[in-house]
Amino acid sequence: MSNDNKISNGSSQIPPSGGGGAVQTYDLPGGGIVLSKLDDVINWARSNSLWPLTFATSCCGIEMMATASAKYDFSRFGFEVARATPRQADVIIIAGTIVNKMAPVLKRLYDQMADPKYVIAMGACAISGGPFFYNTYSVVKGADHVIPVDVYVAGCPPRPEALLHALISLQEKIKMGMTREQIKAPNP
């Protein structure tokens, strides 16, 4: 913390990177000491290093790549390390249609991920089957028939800003110490 200590009020500050305000810091005489609950620190660290799995089945995958690239750049928020193996990933972004043949693969990937793990359904296909809802014999009508989904992003495909918003909302909820059940609830 800064050296110009404010002894008089013992003020609490929200660190600039905290955002959600879950981590409380106290400036003390002498400076340089942060007191907080261990859980808060863990949640803060966890929320800022969510590593996505590179899982893209169709169109939304291209927008996910656009989100990762120069203009939108989700590494600003701690998602830069896209992992190819589920065992190192924390969040799976279901980008694209899930068909009946792919569903067991998706389930297996999800099972291979280590806890705590989060799921974002990106785009209309992953939410409900989207444009491929009627008269198809092979499309799963929503990825939540296969694995539990935390955040839904609407669009076909969603803009990169929409995906960023979803990722940041997920971060904030994790920072607030929510469990997965609380994140999934409609009005937490």
């Binding site: 089945t57 249609t97 693969v105 009627y134 008269n135 092979s138």
Partner: peptide
């Protein structure tokens, strides 16, 4: 193949 077979041809029939 077929992990993204969305049966577009069948949809187009209707």
């Amino acid at each position: 193949l077929g992990y993204i077979h969305r049966s577009i041809e069948k949809m187009c029939e209707s």
